[in-house]
């Protein structure tokens, strides 16, 4: 199972194993990463599962859909170039060790 390192805004680090095929959001929520809210349950509909991906990992991620690009303008903490919605990232073996930064708030 790929391991992902979540870094909170206070720099606390948590290493979490996430089943392949699950989304980054699902793995986070199921492991009490409460900084991920995911109001819509993973439908790319609400922009409350916003994360910042450590730049070195960005090219391992799936392309953004038009909906995700559009919604990233609606996040509570303004988007940066490494912003993604974690519900849109399905875990693959290549993401093992990925570092994900969490925003201070989602709503």
């Amino acid at each position: 199972m790929p391991k992902v390192i979540f870094v909170a805004s206070d720099q606390t680090r948590r290493e979490i194993e996430i089943s392949g095929g699950w989304s980054l959001m699902e793995g986070a929520v199921q492991n009490d990463v409460t900084e991920i809210v995911a109001e819509c349950g993973g439908g790319c509909a609400c922009a409350t599962c916003h994360v910042f991906i450590e730049p070195a990992w960005l090219d391992k991620l799936p392309e953004q859909t038009p909906s995700e690009k559009d919604l990233l303008d609606c996040t509570a903490v303004p988007r940066q170039s490494n912003s993604r919605l974690s519900c849109q990232i399905k875990l693959t073996p290549e993401m093992d060790g990925m570092v994900v930064h969490l925003p201070q708030r989602q709503t």
Binding site: C44, A45, C46, A47, S67, D70, L71, D73, C74
Partner: peptide
């Protein structure tokens, strides 16, 4: 409908 950002706004 298929306008998630408009919904959020």
């Amino acid at each position: 409908i298929n306008r998630p950002a408009e919904h959020m706004v």
